[in-house]
Lab assay of single mutants.
Amino acid sequence: NKASVVANQLIPINTALTLIMMKAEVVTPMGIPAEEIPKLVGMQVNRAVPLGTTLMPDKVKNYE
């Protein structure tokens, strides 16, 4: 099972992601793969992401 990116804290809307905000966890359904964490640093979320929520591609601005 592959790990996904999960919010390590509440991430407010329009916040630029940092390493400390994210952790890798095996979750269902799968979100953004954990190996993409370095790519996500500096990207902004387009909505608030509660603690423990899986980061889905549609929650990150300009994620492809």
Rank of each mutant, 00 (worst) to 15 (best):
P38F: 10
E35S: 14
K2S: 12
E25G: 10
L19G: 02
N62C: 13
L17Y: 01
M21E: 01
T53L: 05
V27S: 03
V6P: 01
K2W: 13
T28Y: 14
S4I: 03
V49H: 08
N14G: 10
V49Y: 05
L55E: 02
L40G: 02
I37T: 01
I13L: 09
V6C: 07
V60M: 05
A24S: 12
V26M: 12
V49E: 05
A16G: 07
P38L: 10
I13R: 13
K2Q: 13
V26G: 04
A7I: 05
M30Q: 12
N62L: 08
A7V: 06
I20F: 12
L55D: 04
R47Q: 15
N1V: 14
K61V: 14
G42W: 06
N1C: 15
N1A: 14
I37S: 02
P29V: 07
V6N: 01
E64V: 15
A34C: 09
P38M: 09
I32Y: 01
L10P: 11
A7C: 06
V6M: 04
K2P: 12
V27C: 08
L55W: 03
T15A: 10
M21V: 05
L51F: 14
A7W: 06
M30G: 09
T53K: 08
I32A: 02
T54C: 07
G31E: 02
V41P: 01
N14S: 06
K61Q: 10
I32G: 00
V6D: 02
T15C: 09
Q44A: 08
A48E: 14
K2M: 12
V26Y: 13
T15D: 01
L55P: 03
E64W: 13
M21D: 02
I13E: 14
A48Q: 13
N62H: 11
P33H: 06
P33D: 09
R47K: 13
N1K: 13
T53A: 15
K59Y: 15
G52I: 05
K23V: 10
L17C: 06
V27L: 03
K61E: 08
M21C: 07
L17S: 00
L51V: 13
P33F: 06
E35N: 13
L10M: 14
E36M: 14
V5I: 14
M56F: 12
L55N: 00
P33V: 04
M22I: 07
V5F: 06
T15S: 09
E35L: 11
A34T: 01
I13V: 13
I20W: 11
E36D: 12
V49F: 06
D58K: 04
M22P: 00
K61M: 12
N46L: 15
V27H: 02
T28D: 14
K23D: 05
A3L: 09
K23L: 08
V60I: 14
T54K: 03
D58P: 02
L51Y: 15
E35F: 12
N46Q: 07
P33R: 09
T18A: 09
M21H: 07
L19I: 10
Y63F: 07
Q9S: 07
L19F: 12
L19V: 09
M30L: 12
N46T: 14
K39L: 12
V6H: 01
E35A: 13
P29N: 04
V41Q: 04
T54F: 06
G52K: 01
G31A: 04
L10S: 12
M21W: 05
L51R: 15
A3R: 11
I20A: 14
N14E: 08
P33T: 05
M30C: 14
A34H: 05
M22V: 04
S4N: 01
V27A: 06
A16N: 11
K61W: 10
N8E: 04
Y63V: 04
L19M: 11
Y63C: 05
T54R: 01
G52E: 01
P57A: 10
I32W: 03
V60W: 01
G31R: 02
E35H: 13
K2V: 13
A7D: 01
E25I: 10
N1Y: 14
T54E: 03
L55S: 02
I13F: 07
K61H: 11
T53S: 13
A34D: 03
L40E: 00
T15I: 09
T18R: 09
G31C: 06
L17V: 00
S4A: 03
L51E: 15
A48C: 13
G52H: 05
N1T: 14
D58Y: 14
E25D: 11
E25L: 14
P29T: 05
I37L: 08
G31S: 04
P57G: 07
A16D: 10
V41Y: 01
G42A: 04
A24T: 07
